[in-house]
Design a binder for these strands. Structure first.
Length: 281
DNA sequence: ACTGCCTGAATACTTGGCAC
DNA sequence: GTGCCAAGTATTCAGGCAGT
């Protein structure tokens, strides 16, 4: 029955569409919300005998009988499991009758966990930072990548960072600074300002890296295609980020073997090859 | 800025069928 | 009679958007 109508249609549309002669109209939905089920659209394969029973019950008075329905915001676990009506009390009536322990799973209503615009934007920004970070890690010179990895590890293990002299002498200071910002970003996500690596972090990050990698592969492909177009002058080409030149100018560079177990280039890395544990822990 | 309506997603609830 | 389950409907909730 629902398959005949758009699933996204609001309730009043479904109802008014179901039977215009039986339902008074959208405006009366709330007062008729608990109307007898027989007035709803019947299954088409319903037996004829049942039809006649339903038709007899669907008198005008029965159709318009008001039975306000009072849904509680949160049903207890027992009522949820049994799909029974819950009165929302502690304990609820059903649990009292059955002498069951009435428990409410707090904070499990995902309707109330939707992110605000600010939260969505913040997550989007973070995703962009992650994307830049992994992109830079993959395309930067070996020395820079190693330094960043060293910093990542020092963050997670509590080791003191490299002396500033090293950073200043690094040939890619700007790049390292950007990567360091990403490190700070990672660091900032955990309480106490210190990254604590858990299996959940690893799983989350692995999933994130998978996403980022796919995105980056698309970016790289489009960048290569753009760069290979002969009709475009250099100035017409899409501005390259500060990280991109290393992709093509130094294709022989590889991530350290401990992070690239099969010895192939960064672009051939897969989730299984990209060791997140090695990156963060 | 406020209000009201619409929308989509998530969840509560109803109903009928079935097994014990 | 009771409880469980599946299918389906009703309600809640928050965001978007237009009108004021």
């Amino acid at each position: 029955m629902a398959s005949m109508l758009p699933l996204s249609a609001p309730a009043h549309q479904l109802l008014s569409d179901a039977s215009a002669t039986e339902y008074p109209g959208p405006d009366s939905v709330s007062v008729n919300a608990g109307a007898p089920r027989s007035i709803l659209r019947r299954p088409e394969n319903l037996a004829v005998g049942v039809h006649s029973i339903l038709d007899a019950a669907a008198t005008p008075s029965a159709r318009h009988a008001k039975r306000p329905r009072t849904n509680v915001t949160v049903a207890c676990d027992g009522c949820k499991l049994a799909r029974a009506k819950c009165d929302g009390n502690h304990p609820c009536m059903r649990c009292m009758k059955k002498a069951l322990s009435c428990k409410y799973d707090q904070g499990n209503d995902r309707r109330q966990n939707r992110g605000s615009n600010e939260e969505v934007q913040a997550l989007t920004d973070r995703l962009g930072q992650y994307q830049k970070f992994v992109f830079a890690l993959r395309s930067s010179p070996l020395g820079s990548a190693s330094y960043v990895l060293w910093r990542l590890r020092s963050v997670s293990t509590g080791t003191e960072p490299q002396p500033r002299g090293h950073q200043e002498s690094c040939p890619c200071v700007a790049e390292v600074a950007a990567l360091a910002a990403a490190v700070e970003l990672l660091n900032d996500t955990k309480s106490g300002g210190r990254l604590v690596c858990t299996s959940l972090d690893v799983d989350e990050t692995a999933a994130l890296v998978g996403w980022i990698k796919r995105d980056m592969d698309m970016d790289v492909d489009s960048t290569v295609a753009l760069a290979q177009r002969p009709s475009l002058s250099q100035s017409q080409r899409q501005p390259q980020s500060q990280f991109q030149p290393y992709i093509h100018s130094q294709p022989e560079e590889r991530l350290p073997s401990e992070h690239n177990h099969n010895g192939t280039g960064a672009r051939s890395l897969t989730k299984s090859h990209f060791s997140v544990e090695g990156l963060l822990c």
